Structures are given as structure tokens and as C-alpha cells.
Amino acid sequence: MPFFQKSVVAALLFISALFALAAAVPVEGARFEARTNTGQATYYIPGLGACGKTSQSTDYVVGVSKLLYDTYPGHTANPNNNPICGHKIQANYAGKSVTAIVVDRCEGCARNDLDFSPSAFQALAPLSAGRLNGVTWSWA
């Protein structure tokens, strides 16, 4: 095979490999939405959150780990524009469940931990529990 034909074949193989890699990359958000996560849950008194919205203790809202917040597909340097904002999370603990809206970023949380408003936390356990281990959650 002449050199020119070998170069064309090599280029086509390279382009095919790039398309195969692109097809293997998940759709935006899919890597977070397709699985059940397990972590700890705590509560905080909400106010102005990282998403730029002000929430009350009676709102069913949640902050997610900075590790998740800062790597969510499409995030930018402006945390108010993070596409994770407004997504709903359904959390389960001891046979109870709650759905809360992401409005904040939790600085001290491990990757799969959640930080709820008091009312959302109380849907799972009394505030006196303080910290819940083994909370499962997924995107609602």
C-alpha cells in the first residue's frame, strides 16, 4: 500500500477512535443522575445559598458537597449559574423519604453527604439526631 493510502487509513482510524471516545462520554449530568448514592445527612439554617437564592428553614432545600457541586457538568466560575441548582434530590432513611431542591453547596460534606434545611431533615428524623449515617439518595 502506498504511503498516501496508509496515511489516509491511519487518519480514518484515528477519527473513528475519537468518535468512539465521544460516544462513551456520558450525557451532561448522566454520571450523577443514574445511580443511588449513600452518605450522611446533617442540617443547617439556610439563608442566601450558593445558587443565589434565599431559603427559609421551612423550605425543603438541600446543600450538596462542594466536591459534587464544583464538578457537576456545566458548572462555571459563577456558582449562581451552576446547573445543579434547582435539581431535586430524593433521600431515604429508616423507611422515610423526602424530596428537596438543591440550593446550596456544603463545604464540610463528603462527596455523597447532604446538608438539609431543618424541615427537610425532620422528614427523615428528629433534629436531635444531628447526623444520619447511611442515607441513600438519588436525583428525583
Results as ranks from 00 to 15, higher is better:
Pro2Ala: 07
Pro2Arg: 12
Phe4Leu: 10
Ser7Gly: 10
Val8Glu: 06
Val9Leu: 14
Ala10Asn: 13
Ala11Val: 06
Leu12Gln: 11
Ile15Leu: 15
Ile15Thr: 13
Ile15Glu: 08
Ala17Cys: 11
Ala17Gln: 07
Leu18Trp: 04
Leu18Ser: 06
Phe19Cys: 10
Phe19Gln: 13
Phe19Tyr: 14
Ala22Tyr: 04
Ala22Cys: 04
Ala23Asn: 09
Ala23Phe: 12
Ala24His: 09
Ala24Tyr: 10
Val25Ala: 11
Pro26Ala: 09
Val27Trp: 00
Val27Thr: 13
Glu28Met: 12
Ala30Arg: 11
Phe32Gln: 12
Phe32Cys: 08
Glu33Gln: 14
Arg35Ser: 14
Arg35Asn: 07
Asn37Thr: 07
Asn37Tyr: 08
Asn37Ala: 05
Gly39Asn: 04
Thr42Tyr: 00
Tyr44Asn: 02
Ile45Ser: 00
Ile45Arg: 01
Pro46Arg: 00
Gly47Ile: 02
Leu48Gly: 02
Gly49Pro: 07
Gly49Glu: 04
Ala50Trp: 03
Ala50Cys: 11
Ala50Thr: 11
Gly52Cys: 06
Lys53Asp: 12
Lys53Cys: 02
Ser55His: 03
Ser55Val: 07
Gln56Met: 09
Tyr60Ser: 15
Tyr60Gly: 10
Val61Ser: 12
Val62Pro: 00
Val62Met: 01
Val62Asn: 00
Val62His: 00
Val64Asn: 04
Tyr69Trp: 13
Asp70Pro: 14
Gly74Gln: 08
His75Pro: 01
Thr76Pro: 06
Ala77Tyr: 01
Asn78Gln: 06
Asn78Trp: 00
Pro79Trp: 04
Asn80Gly: 04
Asn80Val: 04
Asn80Leu: 01
Asn81Val: 02
Asn82His: 05
Gly86His: 09
Gly86Arg: 08
His87Asn: 15
His87Val: 11
Lys88Asp: 13
Ile89His: 01
Ile89Lys: 03
Ile89Glu: 00
Ala91Arg: 05
Asn92Phe: 15
Tyr93Met: 08
Ala94Ser: 15
Gly95Lys: 10
Val98Arg: 03
Val98Lys: 01
Val98Thr: 11
Thr99Ile: 15
Ile101Val: 15
Ile101Gly: 02
Ile101Ala: 06
Val103Trp: 09
Asp104Glu: 10
Asp104Ile: 06
Asp104Phe: 01
Arg105Met: 14
Arg105Asn: 15
Cys106Tyr: 09
Cys106Asp: 02
Gly108Phe: 13
Gly108Gln: 08
Cys109Arg: 08
Ala110Asp: 14
Asp113Glu: 11
Asp115Val: 01
Phe116Gln: 02
Ser117Cys: 06
Ser117Ile: 02
Ser119Arg: 13
Gln122Ile: 05
Gln122Asn: 13
Gln122His: 03
Ala123Phe: 09
Ala123Met: 09
Leu124Ile: 07
Leu124Met: 12
Leu127Thr: 05
Leu127Asn: 11
Ser128Gln: 14
Ala129Met: 10
Arg131Gln: 03
Arg131Glu: 06
Leu132Thr: 04
Leu132Cys: 08
Gly134Val: 02
Gly134Pro: 01
Val135Ser: 04
Trp137His: 06
Trp137Arg: 05
Ser138Asp: 06
Trp139Lys: 06
Ala140Phe: 07
